[in-house]
Write a protein that binds this DNA or RNA. Structure first.
Length: 215
DNA sequence: AAGCAGATCAACCGCTCCACC
DNA sequence: AGGTGGAGCGGTTGATCTGCT
């Protein structure tokens, strides 16, 4: 009984849900002064009513200064698809090849954009392998992806140059994006350009306040 | 303008792995 | 060798946004 009360009291003390700007600032300031460390004790020391896990996630996915916000570019999209073909849902591994992108972001992107189109295409046609053709990388408006019937013809579109990998993607070990069976049947899909995602407060806001606090 | 449905994404949850004792 | 705690990962949820009627 007492234990239950104690637990529920602890649960009340742990905040969940969206982070406030104040919490963000506390976390940023603390890490700026003390560095990343043991997250549970960091959360306690910083005076945040959050779990270490929550702090870690917030820092890695949002607050780190090197996190890139905004649209996934066509180049990044290609890399994601290639590496997903290679490794499957190893999001953190894929994220390592996309500097500034987080595993969470890539995972969400895959599930909400790419997988959706694959499912839709699944209902339309048949094919077993993928061919990726970046139709208009320069304006980043649309990207066409084609899946062909023959495994042997799975390769980058011959009329297109290889993707301009400016990331540490290892082209020497590059293998064509042959998709596993459950990704069959995609014939041609196009993605509209991403919308910019405005947050309640921008990272520029946070970092400008952080600079002021640091002075 | 209001209501609804689908899309998006931040955050949480549960699990596994690994290092340390 | 086994236990424990922290870190990291992938899956899922739920709030919010957006576009359509």
């Amino acid at each position: 009984m007492d234990r239950n009360m104690c637990n529920s009291q602890q649960e009340v003390d742990v905040r969940k849900g969206p982070w406030t700007m104040e919490e963000d600032l506390i976390l940023i300031n603390y890490i700026a002064n003390h560095g990343e460390g043991v997250w549970n004790s960091l959360a306690r020391s910083a005076g945040l009513k959050r779990t270490g896990k929550s702090c870690r996630l917030r820092w890695l996915n949002y607050l780190r200064p090197d996190v890139r916000r905004g649209n996934i570019t066509a180049e990044e999209q290609l890399i994601i698809m290639e590496l997903h073909a290679k490794w499957g849902n190893r999001w953190s591994k894929i994220a390592k090849h996309l500097p500034g992108r987080t595993d969470n972001e890539i995972k969400n992107y895959w599930r909400t954009r790419i997988q959706k189109h694959i499912k839709q295409a699944d209902q339309n046609g048949t094919s077993t392998t993928a061919q990726i053709c970046n139709s208009n990388i320069s304006d980043h408006n649309h990207m066409i992806i084609k899946y062909h019937d023959q495994a042997s013809t799975s390769h980058m579109c011959s009329s297109c140059p290889p993707p301009p990998h400016n990331q540490p993607f290892d082209q020497t070990t590059y293998s064509p994006p042959t998709y596993p069976g459950n990704l069959d049947n995609l014939q041609a899909i196009s993605f509209p350009a991403d919308q910019s995602n405005d947050n309640m407060w921008s990272m520029e806001d946070i970092w400008s306040v952080q600079m002021l606090n640091a002075e």
